[in-house]
Amino acid sequence: MVIKHKNIFKTESSWSNTDEKLLCLDTGSWRTSRPVLDKDKCNYCGLCALYCPPQCMKDAGDHYQVDLAYCKGCGICAHECPRDAITMVPEGEFSDG
């Protein structure tokens, strides 16, 4: 048997590094609304990143930036933000949405 498939995982089991490609379906395409951050309100507390289920809130030094390739649009970050700095905006309002 000739195996032509190039391995995704470097290990025997399906270990994946969350800093790299998440090795799953393009979960960003599931989204119907996306989190938009008001940087003036954000105090960089990190709760959005802590609660984010797919862990796609990336540390940008003075705020957290969503990785739209994986954000499913669940809105938990907006719900948890103590300063209401995140608003969920429908995808239809974006040209790339």
């Binding site: 195996i3 498939h5 391995n7 995704i8 995982f9 290990t11 025997e12 089991s13 399906s14 270990w15 994946s16 590094n17 969350t18 800093d19 998440l22 090795l23 799953c24 379906l25 862990q55």
Partner: peptide
């Protein structure tokens, strides 16, 4: 062997859609 270590986010047994699933089952 690969391990889960606190503070180093890494997934095990996850993200097995499509070819990831096939590859893990093949191995």
């Amino acid at each position: 062997r690969q391990k889960l270590v606190p503070g180093l986010p890494i997934g095990c047994g996850s993200h097995g859609m499509e070819m990831g699933y096939v590859e893990a089952r093949y191995k």
